[in-house]
Each structure stands twice: as structure tokens, then as C-alpha cells.
């Protein structure tokens, strides 16, 4: 078996296949594919060296800083996809932080995982990634719900309902939409797809049973984090849509 950067070099052949297919089909994706290939290489190599540095230093503040940077990038990405939602960045950052710190914190406190950065950072990364997707989906849906059901929401408000009562249905629908990917993943995990953490561990030489044990912990952690982030994002966004006098703002 090939090792080191020879593996990567040979994998480039697969990119060449994609480029040829794009040219043949006139999809005009050749440039994007090449830029993507270079970016992925540079970003991943850089993060590899950065993580090696952080793992070697093993300083709590540096670990925390890394997680905060990851959360900020996650929130920025989530907010970029839901520009129409007022204060989307702040809502996304708070929701991702809540989901991540609660679950990772609890796992550290209960000693499910050790404080070793080689556990904390990858797990935080996975949590942040899933919270980011959940936040985006939740915010997208709550916006669509509130804009699409404006008349209904105002009819309930006019009866004297609070903004929370008037938006209850929309919030439930949005939380469900945000949590659907993780719930679906939990249903088919191991049957349709072998998740990334488990695959990585098996490839790195761990026994499948050991990999499964870690994967179970990971999926439960992700479900909890996504639940918190989804609920937080939809609830926090209500402040952007309603005034303190339970009036629907112009959106």
C-alpha cells in the first residue's frame, strides 16, 4: 500500500477524472475543481500542522481559543446562508456555543472524554459542524414560517396571544427541520452509512468494536448539541421578529 504524500498524489488521478468528465459534459467546473483541489490541500495540510502544534503544546487556553475560532467560523458560515434573518451571526454564534460547550463540557465533567486536545478538538469540531447545519436549517425555516404565516400569526396576536404563543407552531416546525438530519442519521447509522469518526478510527487501526463504542458516544453527543442549538436558534430569532409588545416586525 502507498504511504505518505504518494497516497495524495495518486488520489489526484480521481480529480483528473472529474475534470475530464466536466470538460466532456461542458459543465465548466474545471477551474472550480482545480481551485477546490488546491484549497482543500492547503487548508488541510495547514490545519494538520496547526493541530500537531496544539496537541504538542496541550495548553487549555489554546484549546479553548481553537474551539472559539471554529465556532466563529461556523457561525459566520451559517449566517451567510441566512442573510435574510436579522442578527443571524449573533444568534448562530450563541446557539453553536451553547450546543458545543454544554455537550463537550458535560462529557469532560463526567470524564466520558479526557481533556487531551486530540479528543476535545476533533469532537468539538464535529459538534460545531453539526450545530452549524442545524442552526442554518432552523433559521431558514423559522424565517420562511414567519414570512409565510404572517396573517395567521397576526390573527393569533390580535386575540391577545404572546409572541411565543403565536409562533409556537412555527418554532416546532423549525426545530423539527433543524433536527431532521441528525435524527435520520441516528436511524440509519451503521446500516446505510459508516460515520466519519468510526471510519477514521477503523482506518487508523482501531478494532471495529472499539470504533463503534466511540461512535455511539459521538452520535449521542451530537444529538444533544444539535437539539440545544436548534431550540436556541429558533427561540433567539423570535426577538428579531417580534417587539416586546408582541407585535410582528416588518420582515
Amino acid at each position: 500500500m502507498l504511504t505518505g504524500y504518494y497516497q495524495v498524489l495518486m488520489a489526484l488521478v480521481l480529480i483528473a477524472v472529474a475534470v475530464v468528465l466536466s470538460r466532456w459534459q461542458r459543465a465548466r467546473l474545471e477551474k472550480d475543481l482545480l481551485v477546490g483541489t488546491v484549497r482543500a490541500f492547503v487548508q488541510l495540510v495547514a490545519i494538520g500542522y496547526a493541530l500537531e502544534f496544539i496537541f504538542d503544546l496541550n495548553h487549555p487556553l489554546l484549546i479553548l481559543l481553537t474551539i472559539v475560532i471554529m465556532m466563529t467560523v461556523g457561525a459566520y458560515t451559517a449566517a451567510g446562508r441566512v442573510r435574510e434573518v436579522p442578527s443571524a451571526f449573533g444568534i448562530a454564534l450563541l446557539s453553536i456555543s451553547l450546543g458545543t460547550f454544554f455537550t463537550i463540557g458535560l462529557m469532560l465533567l463526567t470524564r466520558i472524554i479526557s481533556t487531551d486536545p486530540k479528543y476535545v478538538i476533533p469532537l468539538a469540531g464535529m459538534t460545531i459542524g453539526n450545530c452549524m447545519i442545524a442552526t442554518t436549517l432552523g433559521l431558514e425555516r423559522i424565517h420562511a414560517e414567519i414570512v409565510g404565516k404572517k396573517e395567521k400569526i397576526e390573527a393569533i396576536l390580535a386575540l391577545g396571544a404572546s409572541s411565543r404563543q403565536a409562533s409556537l407552531e412555527s418554532c416546532c416546525v423549525s426545530v423539527r427541520a433543524a433536527m431532521t438530519p441528525i435524527v435520520n442519521m441516528m436511524k440509519v447509522i451503521g446500516l446505510v452509512q459508516l460515520p466519519g469518526a468510526m471510519t477514521g478510527m477503523i482506518l487508523a487501526g482501531a478494532s471495529p468494536v472499539e470504533a463503534v463504542r466511540i461512535q455511539i458516544v459521538v452520535i449521542y453527543m451530537l444529538a444533544s448539541a444539535v437539539g440545544i442549538a436548534s431550540l436556541s436558534a429558533t427561540r433567539l430569532s423570535l426577538r428579531s421578529y417580534f417587539t416586546k409588545f408582541h407585535q410582528l416586525r416588518e420582515v
Binding site: E151, K152, A155, I156, L157, A158, L159, G160, H246
Partner: peptide, 19 residues
């Protein structure tokens, strides 16, 4: 309180909305 105002002053909209 807003809820009290809306309890005492009802509003019927142009197009009825079923809730």
C-alpha cells in the same frame, strides 16, 4: 398590558384566517 388591550378590543380582519 398588550394582551389585556387585545382582550378588550377585538379585531376582525378583511380575510378570515382559520387557526
Amino acid at each position: 398590558r398588550t394582551d389585556r388591550v387585545r382582550q378588550r378590543i377585538g379585531l376582525v380582519f378583511q380575510v378570515p384566517v382559520i387557526l
